[in-house]
Simulated assay, not measured.
Amino acid sequence: MKNLLMLCMESVASNDHNTANKLLNRIKQLSSPSGNAFQRLAHCLAKGLEARLTGTGNLIYRSLTTKGEVNF
């Protein structure tokens, strides 16, 4: 799973949408919002990578900050 996440991050960073989407699909199959700690972390990272890939990261961040879920 760690290797899949790293490869996906690299693909997103280099705008390789095809590879990133394939890897994201695999990560989604292996991760879970209600699984063990690593599965939950992978699920959150996949959501973030997907948001960056689709260009919706700012919208998600704004919605979290208005709900008070992001604290610095």
Rank of each mutant, 00 (worst) to 15 (best):
I60W: 13
E50I: 07
N15E: 13
T54W: 05
G57Y: 07
K67W: 02
V12L: 03
N25L: 05
Y61I: 15
T54G: 09
S34I: 11
L49K: 01
I60Q: 13
F38E: 15
N58H: 13
S34M: 00
C8M: 08
S63N: 11
A37R: 06
L7Q: 13
N18M: 05
N15C: 12
A37K: 02
P33M: 01
T66N: 10
A42S: 15
L64W: 10
D16M: 06
A37I: 11
S11R: 10
K28T: 13
N21K: 08
E50D: 11
N3Y: 08
L64A: 10
Q29Y: 06
L30A: 08
A42W: 01
T56L: 04
F72C: 09
S31M: 02
G55F: 00
S63I: 03
M1K: 07
M9W: 01
V12H: 01
Q29E: 14
G68L: 07
A42C: 03
N25K: 11
E50Q: 14
N18W: 06
H43I: 03
A42P: 04
L5C: 01
I27R: 00
A20F: 04
A51N: 06
T54L: 11
V12K: 04
L7Y: 01
F38W: 12
S63E: 12
N58R: 11
A42Y: 09
Y61K: 15
T65D: 06
M6I: 15
E69W: 15
L53F: 05
K22L: 02
M9F: 05
T19C: 04
G57H: 03
C8I: 09
L24V: 08
L41A: 01
I27L: 06
R52Y: 00
N15R: 13
M9Y: 05
T56P: 05
T65Y: 07
M1W: 11
A37E: 12
V70P: 00
G57P: 02
V12R: 07
E10W: 02
L4F: 14
T56C: 00
N15H: 14
T66R: 10
G68T: 03
G57E: 12
G35S: 02
H17V: 02
R26Y: 04
N15S: 15
I27W: 03
S32G: 10
L49V: 02
N25P: 07
G57D: 12
T54S: 14
C8H: 08
N71M: 08
E69D: 11
L23G: 00
R40D: 02
A37L: 05
I27F: 05
T56K: 12
R26K: 13
I27E: 08
S31H: 00
L59E: 15
G35Y: 10
T19F: 02
N15K: 14
G55E: 01
R62E: 13
N71W: 01
C8Y: 03
T19Y: 00
L53Y: 02
F72K: 12
N18Q: 12
P33A: 08
S63L: 08
V70F: 07
S11W: 06
T65L: 12
H17S: 02
K22V: 01
H17F: 01
S32C: 03
Y61E: 15
H17C: 06
L4G: 06
G55Q: 09
C8N: 09
L7N: 14
S31C: 10
I60A: 12
Q29N: 11
C44V: 13
S31R: 10
K22C: 00
H43E: 02
L24M: 09
